[in-house]
Design a protein around this nucleic acid. Sequence first.
DNA 1: CGATATATTGAACCGTCTCAAACTTCGTGG
DNA 2: CCACGAAGTTTGAGACGGTTCAATATATCG
Lengths: 206, 206
Amino acid sequence: MSVRSRLPSRIQAFGVERTLRPNQVLFRMKGTAEGLFEVVSGKLRLLRRDALAGEETISIAVAGDLIGQGSLGSDVYHCEAVALTRSRVRLYRKAAVLAEVERDPDLARQLITMLAAEVMSLRTCLQLRAIRNARERVRSFLKLSADSETLIVTLPGTVKDLASYLGLTHEALYRTLSAMVSDGEIRRSKNHITIRELAVDRKRTS
Amino acid sequence: MSVRSRLPSRIQAFGVERTLRPNQVLFRMKGTAEGLFEVVSGKLRLLRRDALAGEETISIAVAGDLIGQGSLGSDVYHCEAVALTRSRVRLYRKAAVLAEVERDPDLARQLITMLAAEVMSLRTCLQLRAIRNARERVRSFLKLSADSETLIVTLPGTVKDLASYLGLTHEALYRTLSAMVSDGEIRRSKNHITIRELAVDRKRTS
DNA sequence: CGATATATTGAACCGTCTCAAACTTCGTGG
DNA sequence: CCACGAAGTTTGAGACGGTTCAATATATCG
């Protein structure tokens, strides 16, 4: 659901750890950008709020993920991070990161490729949403997210969160998943979805 | 419509210029990523193709814009660039850029902030699309894109391109714009849209 | 064990898509 | 410079699908 971005270990030296309880807000939209965070343990939800668009889940971050990268290019955060579970995060102050970048070309290169990958991941998401038909959209998402070996998709959050990520109401997603199950296209268990038939790419089975 | 990203002049030394005629393809999806391009003159359309999602305009790049940044994080391009007009572009080979990054921390910092800004720009676009109502979506887009002084939005491409960017069919966008004009909410001329009333934020005037 | 959030299904409405048709603009080539 | 074709623009009508509102079941957490 998001790029797994990791910082090289040498920079971790100057990271400051912080613990979050469930539902605690790590940073808010328009809050002063301290820097970026690495999720050490636990799980956080990244979202955007807007009077018109409502609440939109950007992604679910788990251990190892880097969040708040946008802060490197701005003075304020443009999204909100809330802990889903008790979590530990490590803060890398913006100034410290940028300073370290000057000294460590390798870190610079890693940050650049990481951000470039993030850009592409977002574009993929954007393209996913361009698919009008709910079922096709879900199908595309599953294809993109499935482990290529097992064809299993592991849901990082709730189905509701997934609905938000896909730009559907949760009702529509539940219905679509149900229909796909009864058609034998997928199989569902707790936190997993298994694709049963491999992309026969039949045109809109609706 | 997209982040105006510029490379510091010192790196321009090793850029290779190339001329494109209208409709010429600069790079395709899944084509080997040579590197990134700076638009010297003219106008290009960035898009993604997909059997299900169809053609989706990502942005219109004009002189000064940097395109194909995603290539820094991947071996292949994930979008397609087509010249809208006769254009000149300058290629910065991926390896050259990454090598220069090692030598020039300042370039590194600029690339990082540029990419971070792009990430946020994409997230904003994503959020825009989360607005279900066409009129509200157009309204939000106009607010975001308007010059804060004059309240004028300059369209970089055709209205059809804008429709693609907004995730609407062109018919829906034409209709919405017409309605907004007759309601006196906006004014239109050739390539400009002027917002007449400043966001009174009345709930769904539909 | 109660409270709160998620999961699930139903029914109806409404807006956008789709298909269609005409008009305008623009660029190209004769 | 005009003719032509291609692409963009514009408006119409109808169908479909996802949203919305609603109600209930299930699960999770303190």
